[in-house]
Amino acid sequence: MHSEEFKNNVLPLKGALYRFAKSLLNNPEEAEDCVQEIFLKLWTRRASLSTIANLKAYTLQMTRNLCLDKLKSTKHMMLDVEQIAIASDVNLHRQLEAREAVALLEHLVKRLPELQRTVLHLRSVEGLEINEITEITGMRVEHVRVTLSRARITLRQAYEKYTGHG
């Protein structure tokens, strides 16, 4: 892949990679560092990138692998922090505003198991086809659908529980 092609085909993926890294790492700065690292790796591999059929899926897969590696060392602290954040951010005794609903869902999504969060993100935020998600996660099609279903149902139930909304 030429420098020009790299600039035109790979660089524009930075938003998608960043959003995915942020959803996995729960931290904007770490997500940016992660994406920078991915770009460096991609640059060193640029000679072979032309042979990749789906660059977006491929780079998202790289991003996921790197993020999961990073998470292994810091995993344990996350949950407690999030519990506190929900309690303080959202006043649940009144009608929610749209902005608050989004903030609440942000917290609820963070509590989903990693695989559910990943599948939900790739589908609903990045709008990927199921077969692209199988490529990124190494899951089978059926498994992706089941995981997606669980994520959607869990999110709805958690939201109902916090808001009293049906």
């Binding site: 749209a98 609903a101 869902l105 959607r152 909304h165 049906g166």
Partner: peptide, 10 residues
Amino acid sequence: LSADRAPFLY
């Protein structure tokens, strides 16, 4: 902002 709709907003 129902539980069905809110996730789409998010």
